[in-house]
Design a protein around this nucleic acid. Structure first.
Lengths: 168, 168
DNA sequence: TTTATTAATGTTATATTATAACGTATCATT
DNA sequence: AATGATACGTTATAATATAACATTAATAAA
């Protein structure tokens, strides 16, 4: 099992995450002959700077502030589509929001643990889940192409807080 | 494993499904002291009549035609919210659409197999998946409350069609 | 059976998310 | 430099969802 759960839910040197993600993005783009333009890189950076999934219009606000000029929705959606194509980010359907992918090079589950309290979201890559879903699909004669797996609940921190307040 | 995959993907006496769903809805409402009003029942019926998930504005069109009068979005969203609350329908986040739940009384996975070709959508209830997701959550100290699991691919019929056309 | 209370609906307006269409600029190759 | 492909700017609008408040209907209480 591969997960960024601990990183997401605990304090850490976040600038390292961001730098690692951008370096990895640069590699991937070079490899695929794709252009990580200024706009695209900024959107990716904004997603990584956030500890939560961001919606298109949140990205619009932030990019607009960053560039100190108006930014249109199309600009955001185009950047986001590009990053989605390359697997550098994911869309979280239930939130209409986007988040950086912590392991863009590996086959993985698109499995997210979303805290309904604080909004923090961790991704988990888990082969057993993938295998199980594949076998369920096979049995049903369903040709599986992709998947969106979203879990809702309380992250470790918010779970602990709830526990505490109910005890004390 | 509990699934309506075969029913969804193969010809059958669909009026029976609809009647069964409505009967089950009536029971549930009686039990919970909830009112299955005319609007709510119509929306549920429309969802069951469709072989695919329907969006709010598709429901608006259909209800409007059924009643032969204008229907506002709020009417649809209110009915849909009610039915969601009772577990009589599900929302499919990736499609912004709604679908009748074939087993509203049982604990289940909210796992959907969505055909990207014809749109037909089957629900699967699978304890192993639930257990696995619960154990993953436990390991991550994530307090799991609910889940949305959406699989995209080709239904048996469309898989077969693709196979055929590639062969011949 | 009136009255009070709650639940559901009607209606209008508007917020939020996403895309279309078309012109302009930038980049890569010749 | 000319060309073609890719990316971006800009404006408008489509699609999805909610807010707010008036009205009606159903239930409960007096």
């Amino acid at each position: 099992m591969l997960t960024n759960s601990r990183l997401v839910h605990q304090p850490h040197d976040h600038s390292r995450c961001i730098n690692a993600a951008l370096a990895s993005a640069n590699n991937l783009c070079a490899e695929k002959n794709a252009r990580l333009t200024a706009t695209r890189e900024s959107v990716l950076r904004l997603l990584w700077q956030s500890h939560q999934p961001l919606g298109a219009y949140q990205l619009q606000d932030r990019l607009s502030k960053l560039l100190n000029k108006p930014v249109a929705p199309a600009t955001i959606y185009r950047a986001v589509d590009f990053l989605l194509q390359l697997g550098l980010i994911h869309r979280i359907a239930s939130l209409n929001a986007y988040i950086g992918c912590p392991f863009p090079n590996s086959e993985h589950s698109n499995l997210f643990m979303i805290c309904t309290d604080c909004g923090s979201t961790a991704e988990v890559a888990h082969n057993t889940i993938n295998d199980l879903l594949q076998s369920i699909s096979d049995k049903a004669h369903f040709t599986l192409k992709s998947q969106s797996l979203e879990l809702f609940g309380l992250c470790p921190q918010c779970s602990a807080d709830t526990e505490e307040s109910s005890n004390g």
